[in-house]
Simulated scan of single mutants.
Amino acid sequence: MLDRTDPPVFFSPFVSSPMGIEPQWIDYNGHLNMAYYHVLFDRAVDEVYELLGMGPQYLEQRGCSTMVAEAHVRYLREIHEGSPVRVTVQLLAHDAKRFHVFEQLYHASEGWLSATCESMTLHVDMAAKKVAPFPDDIMAALARMQAAHAALPVPEGAGRRVAMPERR
């Protein structure tokens, strides 16, 4: 559960609540299915949204929401059913209409990195179905989060692209 202050305090990086790997998420290969890595990353971002003022009530009250325009997931080490996990969320950049985050999924008790997700998210006016500027209060919250994350190094893997290895 989030301890919400006004204005919110943004830890550097943000660390999600603990989560677990559910049995129905395991695929026929005995691995966590790739779709559920996204679920874990999404749940962590939902906690950040609460702090930013863009929680579940945001769409109803403001008529706006967000949509991921691009995401890049790296699967680094298998995570198994029942494993406790946490996700860190680092705000790399933002502007008036979008933000760029890098998330890292860790085994919560052993501390090793399982996966990363880098994404670009757009702020959308749902009535107009167009990208729109964030309201001033959300921009201020993003600026506070960006300031809290400014001293963090750029994570290893940020800015990578999907490509075949170059031949030598």
Rank of each mutant, 00 (worst) to 15 (best):
T121M: 07
Y58E: 09
M34P: 00
D95V: 14
D136R: 10
E70M: 07
D42Y: 03
M164E: 14
R4G: 00
Y106G: 00
A93F: 05
S17E: 14
P56R: 12
L52H: 01
P56W: 09
S83K: 03
V48Y: 00
A143D: 15
S114L: 02
V9L: 14
V85C: 15
A71P: 01
L59A: 12
R77C: 07
A150T: 12
G20S: 12
L142H: 03
S17R: 09
G82D: 04
P8H: 08
G30W: 09
C117Q: 10
P18W: 00
I26L: 02
A163M: 11
F134D: 02
K130T: 12
Y58K: 08
G20W: 09
G20A: 07
Y106V: 00
I79G: 05
A148R: 05
M54E: 09
V162S: 08
Q146S: 15
T5E: 13
R144V: 13
A158W: 03
Q90P: 06
M67P: 06
P18G: 01
F102D: 01
S114I: 01
G82P: 08
A148M: 12
T88Y: 02
T5Q: 15
E60W: 06
V162R: 09
H100S: 07
L40K: 02
T121L: 05
I26G: 02
L51E: 03
P133I: 12
L51A: 03
P56Q: 10
L2A: 08
H149P: 04
E118Q: 11
A158V: 08
E78I: 06
E70T: 09
M164L: 15
D136Y: 07
A150D: 13
V101G: 03
E47A: 11
E78G: 05
F10E: 01
A143I: 14
E47K: 04
S119N: 06
S16E: 03
H107E: 12
V124L: 14
R4E: 09
E70C: 04
F11A: 15
C117D: 13
Q61F: 08
V9C: 10
